[in-house]
Design a protein around this nucleic acid. Structure first.
Lengths: 231, 231
DNA sequence: GCAAAAGTGTTGTGTCTACACCCATGT
DNA sequence: ACATGGGTGTAGACACAACACTTTTGC
């Protein structure tokens, strides 16, 4: 008789969709299961919630085994999944997080762990595929009305480098012209004053920028019915 | 020795911030605790997750004791709280939901349960006050870029009635003129063709509208960096 | 006729995309 | 010189708030 029918409370795990733009493509960190159930399928990193810790602490602790925690520029809760059938052998609730890794770091990862394009997920264990996609959608939405971009980008960058990151994350072309204007108008970006020399092919040197803030901020309150003018 | 130090897994409860505009004010359904801990403090409805059910099922089941489930026009997951100290005696994780009740229904509620303005919460048990406020913020944000309004409004209404609901939920004045234009432009509203006779004071009869869709839809993709024109 | 409430016309502002054009560098 | 990539100028579309004005009723 499986555990799930004897226990009076569910086990609780934390999971994370850790995303990074690699080779111009949005990728998610997965490890390959070495045992049943779902032997050979790919899974999100995570593990059991322990006594005395929060879920956020739990996911950070489990991730530490996969990536250096300092490599995570942003982390937020996504959703909690509780379908009793989500795990075949156990009553297991999962709270999923979204984690973002800047493009300039290449975390050391264990043998069983590799990056996979979110658009071409391998066979996934349990509901982990849906969670990875939910993470992608959350990122896409927030790129439009917050400064989350800071968590995908290196400390400093040119506009075309940033364009590459945005377009990989959003899944469509992004015009460097408009990207620059939108982010500058909102004062998300500030010039470092430096400049990047052109490549062999020539071209004008590119100005170098950085994000003005290092934490998540809502920059476009998209409030269509906003408070009346206090005039 | 409290349970929390002996159990290897947390108990899990579902909670709901059930909101409704009543008497022109956004209110939340609370019940008053009749036992320790937090005797006399007010709490969100909810309760234990049972074997074989999802969290959403759980919160609906517990709510059935407080309000008729058919009175809920919309329900969505808010967040999961896991601070080990959130409950003084027990290791208890809570997943919170937001529920919305249309203004035209007045659910029968038990003796210990009443509505309270979200802006003047009574002394609240545990972290339930924060959850109620998180629900309010979620509602406010979604009023701007989705059709959640349908879940606050009766089946049909005049623009000024709807204005009252929006302004209570948003916490600031809303112009009937602009509300009508925004919602019609987005095709959220459609005229029923009917008209409402004016009161004793006279005035032009008001046109009656209804929401075009009965489920949640994102109507303003607020995508500032949107896909390029396929032209 | 007059007050009251509903609804439309109009103007101004701001944000966004698209595209033409100018700039600074390598070969 | 000229190709290449970076950056600016500008015009058009659109969504919104504000407010003046018109419409339709009761008294």
């Amino acid at each position: 008789m499986p555990k799930s029918t004897t226990e009076s409370r569910p086990a609780h795990e934390s999971l994370a969709a850790v995303l990074q733009v690699r080779d111009g493509v949005l990728q998610v960190l997965l490890w390959q299961r070495a045992k049943q159930p779902s032997l050979g399928a790919w899974a999100l990193p995570g593990g059991r919630l322990e006594r005395g810790e929060t879920l956020e602490h739990s996911i950070r602790r489990h991730l530490a085994a996969k990536v250096d925690v300092r490599d995570l520029a942003h982390m937020e809760q996504l959703e909690t999944r509780s379908d009793p059938g989500r795990h075949p052998e156990e009553w297991l609730v999962a709270t999923a997080y979204l984690g973002l890794v800047p493009a300039d770091v290449d975390p050391r990862v264990p043998e069983d762990t590799t990056w996979h394009p979110v658009d071409e997920l391998p066979p996934m264990a349990f509901d982990h595929g849906e969670i990875a996609l939910a993470g992608r959608e959350r990122l896409r939405a927030k790129l439009s009305y917050t400064n989350v971009g800071f968590a995908l980008a290196p400390p400093s960058f040119t506009i075309s480098e940033l364009r590459g990151l945005y377009s990989a994350a959003l899944g469509h072309d992004v015009s460097a012209t408009n990207l620059q204007r939108v982010l500058l108008r909102r004062q998300l970006l500030e010039p470092t004053g430096e400049t990047r020399p052109p490549g062999r092919a020539g071209g004008r040197p590119a100005a170098v920028f950085r994000f003005a803030a290092a934490g998540l901020e809502v920059t476009d309150p998209f409030a269509v019915l906003r408070p009346p003018d206090p005039r």
